[in-house]
């Protein structure tokens, strides 16, 4: 996993750095002092290496905690694992928010469209029934008019 790889890479860096800055190299740089005080030189060197390693390791821990890197690395490992069957390059942001926001909006718009289609259908059905009643009412009024006219004619 990424978390382990991160730690391994940092440890390897540190080991190689320490190996490069060997005691021999240190002593050769401080040759006169080393000749004067070999034990002290050794002691100072050990402390230097120990301090350097501790500071670097502490810094790495701090960075990991601040960035929540452990959790992020594990999460990314999972996402990568899930995508392992995907061979094609995945979508990437175009850099134009207008273009990219479209797809994010699309599901909501599609939902809204479906909702509007449904309520439109319902309203049209409601109106169809109301129109049927209106037509029936018009028919009844015509019938009444005809009956009245017939009565009037009969009296006339």
């Amino acid at each position: 996993g990424r978390a382990q790889l991160f730690d391994t890479v940092v440890d390897t860096f540190l080991q190689k750095l320490v190996a490069a800055g060997s005691y021999q190299r240190f002593a050769s740089c401080y040759r006169r002092f080393y000749k004067l005080q070999p034990e002290l030189t050794r002691g100072i060197y050990e402390q230097f290496i120990s301090q350097l390693q501790a500071s670097i390791k502490e810094e790495i821990q701090e960075i990991k905690q601040e960035g929540n890197l452990e959790m992020l690395f594990n999460s990314l490992d999972k996402i990568v694992e899930e995508a392992k069957t995907q061979e094609e390059p995945a979508w990437r942001p175009s850099g134009v928010p207008e273009e990219d926001a479209g797809s994010a909006l699309a599901p909501y718009l599609l939902k809204h469209r479906a909702y509007l289609q449904r309520i439109l259908r319902e309203k049209q059905e409601e109106n169809r029934q109301a129109a049927e009643a209106v037509l029936a009412g018009r028919g009844r009024i015509t019938e009444l008019q005809q009956l009245i006219a017939a009565h009037q004619q009969a009296w006339q």
């Binding site: 979508w91 942001p93 994010a104 599901p107």
Partner: peptide, 13 residues
């Protein structure tokens, strides 16, 4: 080849 979960909508829509 990896798409972040929050961008799944880009492939679906």
């Amino acid at each position: 080849n990896v798409l972040l979960p929050e961008d799944k909508v880009q492939e679906q829509y």
